[in-house]
């Protein structure tokens, strides 16, 4: 046994002499989870047309404006930023991704420690093509989602009840794997067309939500 141990020690020694390559360690679990979730968001962009995105027609003719940027806003306390930072500068249909992080509602309390009725950067938020809601925003969804319904934006969430509150796509963890569900009523209000090849993979599609009455306002 002692010889075996000796050989292992030697092996360890050799390893410590070896050239040092690669990144340090493996990703902590939260980083991995949000890198995967960010990759989902990145993929969604390939399946959505209409609204603020290229029209179905332009998409078919590959007529995207190469100077345009696709703005991704991340709202609230993101458990790990790395994944979204990786999206910065990536191209989707020749459009460059720009990622912007916004403080969540809980972080923008006023002097009386009250959460303001409206997000102070609402104008900036409205400029995004995609708005990702972090779990920290769960309590404030009813405050913000109704105001973003007709902006042609893709509203992506990461919280139970996100679709019911008017979000478009919600990411959920099932069996330690990331899945997603789609609110078709919200997509319709935003004039977004979500390709059937994406809808087919959703674990659930919602036809009506709490803002359902607005379906008919058009």
């Amino acid at each position: 046994m002692s010889t075996n141990r000796g050989i292992l020690l030697l092996a360890l020694l050799l390893a410590s002499q070896a050239p040092l390559w690669g990144r340090a360690g493996e990703d902590p679990p939260a980083v991995r989870e949000y890198r995967v979730k960010a990759a989902f968001v990145y993929n969604f962009l390939k399946f959505v047309v209409g609204g603020r995105f290229v029209s179905a027609e332009d998409d078919k003719n590959a007529k995207a404006d190469p100077n345009r940027v696709l703005r991704i806003g991340v709202l609230g306390q993101v458990p790990a930023r790395e994944g979204f930072v990786e999206l910065q500068g990536k191209l989707v249909r020749d459009q460059r991704l720009e990622v912007q992080f916004f403080p969540g509602f809980a972080d923008v309390k006023d002097a009386d420690q009250e959460v303001p009725p409206q997000h102070p950067q609402m104008a900036e938020l409205r400029k995004c093509h995609v708005l990702v809601f972090c779990p920290s925003e769960k309590a404030y969804l009813a405050q913000i989602l109704p105001h973003l319904q007709k902006e042609g934006m893709l509203l992506v969430g990461d919280t139970p009840g996100f679709l019911e509150a008017g979000g478009t796509i919600n990411l959920v963890l099932e069996d330690a794997k990331v899945r997603f569900e789609v609110n078709r009523a919200a997509a319709k209000r935003a004039r977004l067309q979500i390709r059937s090849s994406l809808l087919r993979l959703a674990i659930r599609t919602l036809e009506r939500d709490s803002l359902g009455g607005q379906d008919h306002e058009k």
């Binding site: 990703d27 679990p29 991995r32 989870e33 890198r35 995967v36 960010a38 990759a39 989902f40 990145y42 993929n43 994944g83 990786e86 999206l87 990536k90 963890l173 330690a176 794997k177 990331v178 899945r179 994406l198 993979l201």
Partner: peptide, 19 residues
């Protein structure tokens, strides 16, 4: 396997986050 951005949705749905 960790270049998540190169993966399709189906492949991403297969990534296990089990720890």
């Amino acid at each position: 396997e960790e270049n998540y951005l190169d993966m399709s949705i189906e492949e991403l749905m297969d990534v296990s986050l089990d720890t």
